[in-house]
């Protein structure tokens, strides 16, 4: 596994999060690690700090992790999760201001070439503008 910036997808819906992650896998391939967190413990709509932390930890790399979020609470909970990561890992994790699906694909495409987290962020955030 090459050390590329990893992607985490956070949605209120588990199906949306998983679907976006699947799409990134199929379109971009295996060289970018993707994890997702979506839905609540009981299968409802929502986001969960513990699940987001676990997703970030799964793919965490020194190179950085780009997090794509959908609506309000997903961002709040992702910020909380990043702050609560141990060992200062959160410093290498950023929430991107881009739509979940498109942003994840663009971010992963940029990441696949070995780009830095700042470059990944710029590509995802410029999309559509």
């Amino acid at each position: 596994m090459s050390d590329n910036v990893a992607i985490v997808i956070v949605s209120h819906s588990r199906d949306v999060a998983k679907g976006a992650a699947d799409m990134v896998h199929q379109m971009v391939g295996e060289e970018v690690r993707v994890a997702y967190a979506g839905g609540t413990e009981d299968g409802g709509l929502g986001t969960d700090v513990a699940a987001i932390m676990a997703a970030i930890e799964t793919v965490w790399t020194e190179k950085g992790v780009a997090v794509l979020v959908d609506l309000g609470g997903a961002e709040t909970n992702s910020e909380m999760a990043i702050e609560m990561l141990p060992d200062g890992k959160g410093e290498k994790v950023q929430i991107l201001d881009a739509p979940v699906v498109e942003g994840a694909v663009m971010a992963a495409t940029e990441a696949a070439g070995g780009s830095s987290l700042a470059e990944v962020r710029a590509t995802a955030e410029d999309f559509g503008s």
Binding site: Q26, M27, V28, G29, V105, T109, A112, G113, G114, S115
Partner: peptide
Amino acid sequence: HARPAVKLTKLAKT
């Protein structure tokens, strides 16, 4: 479309 575009940019980056 999207998928070929992703493949093209990935290859170009190499």
